[in-house]
Amino acid sequence: MSQDLTNGAAERADVVPEESAIRPVINVVLAGVGGQGSVLATRILARAAALAGHEVVTSEVHGMSQRGGTVVTTVRYGDEVLAPAIPEGQADFLVAFERLEAARHLALVRPGGAALVNDQRIAPSIEALKHAAYPDDLQARADTAGVVIHLCPALRMARELGNDKLSSTVLLGALANQLLIDGEHWRQAVRESVPPRTVEANEAAFASGSEWAVERPTFSS
């Protein structure tokens, strides 16, 4: 697996007792804006992890998520997973579907963790912008939090494939063969999770994300 992505989660002393074959618990936070497909992406990740033989626990808080609000979900997997939500500051990885939501959820990631961020801006409401500006300092915030940022032009790539909504699958494609899940399990999870008539388009989006990741020297080792 790539060390860059999990940034050494497997080597963390607090999750891997010495001389143990127990796989570490991987904690992933997914954050986006209602309507971006982050709930579906959460289900795909959970299914992929389950196919890879992990115990999986997810948590999502929704209800108003379709109305353009922040949506944050968590996926935890490994040999034994307990609490549904990830303790603050202990996520290994953040998948952010939008830049502001990336900045907002950096605090959930542990120092040394990483974030894959869709390079997309979705304007918050004018009412919200009266009180705070859209941040231009994502990188600086990540540096402060000790989190490595990988910016992926998933929206642009999805648009090239003809459908903006594929950007969440593009983003998942960039995670193929990462996070202790094989590419084949990822692809199977995508096939089994998306609406049947969109399987082909989602497979293409996933492949496109995977290719992007391979071409990124900082992204795969």
């Binding site: 108003m64 353009g68 939501e101 900045a103 409401s125 500006a133 300092d137």
Partner: peptide, 12 residues
């Protein structure tokens, strides 16, 4: 750091 704008749900 500057505060971030909130993103509450809204009527579509």
């Amino acid at each position: 750091v500057a505060p971030l704008p909130i993103r509450p749900p809204a009527l579509c």
